[in-house]
């Protein structure tokens, strides 16, 4: 009986909403696009992926073809193309991938991460305040959970983007920099997969 009570308590607490501790306020934003996507034409990034103890490094190139339409290519240091994909109106389209990367688990992971990073004109459903941030809740098509933009109340720049149902699934943390696109670190809850992006200035 005691254990049943305990497990139902755990169940209740794990079902608690992600926004439980937030204070909802009147919406001041209806449509939101992260500032780093404004004036985005084409850029290249150093990308590092640490997954299950393995390290992979390379270059990510990104080009904006239209609003909510981006094309990306992942290349290794020696120039070999590993992957080429597009996000168009929140749909993921794979143009090319080497066999080793052409796996559902990898594609789904990249799809989620890049949708979080590169979605524009997102409809805001709720707005919250906590002590340090303005938090905008949005639902991005093709992502099952709500997305939370944590904005610095003074600069209004995003400090993190979080995909969360009851628990945090994906968290993107930005590091303040003078670059047009800040450094980003993407973590995936308990999964040991981390992605880092750093804008390359000379390209």
């Amino acid at each position: 009986m005691k254990s049943l009570l305990l497990s139902s308590l755990i169940l209740i607490s794990s079902c608690a909403s992600y926004t439980k501790s937030f204070k909802e306020k009147e919406r001041t934003v209806e449509i939101y696009s992260p500032g780093y996507l404004k004036n985005f034409k084409e850029k290249s990034f150093k990308i590092s992926i640490d997954a299950f103890g393995n390290h992979f490094g390379g270059i990510l190139v990104a080009k904006k073809l239209d609003n909510n339409h981006y094309r990306f290519a992942l290349i290794n240091e020696f120039g070999g193309k590993l992957m080429d994909f597009e996000l168009k109106n929140n749909e993921f389209q794979l143009n090319y991938a080497i066999e080793q990367l052409n796996r559902k688990i990898i594609i789904n992971l990249l799809k989620k991460d890049f949708l979080l990073l590169f979605s524009e004109q997102n409809r805001i459903d709720h707005e919250f305040d906590n002590q340090s941030f303005i938090i905008l809740e949005s639902s991005i098509p093709n992502l099952k959970q709500p997305v939370y933009y944590y904005l610095n109340p003074e600069t209004e720049k995003p400090e993190s983007i979080i995909l969360a149902g009851k628990k945090e699934k994906v968290k993107i943390t930005f590091t303040e920099s003078s670059n047009s696109v800040p450094d980003a670190e993407v973590t995936h809850g308990k999964l040991p997969i981390k992605i880092y992006l750093h804008l390359l200035e000379n390209n």
Binding site: V61, A73, D84, N202, N203
Partner: peptide
């Protein structure tokens, strides 16, 4: 890369 305007150097 054909879709990019600038080459990556």
């Amino acid at each position: 890369l054909d879709f990019m305007e600038n080459d990556v150097k």
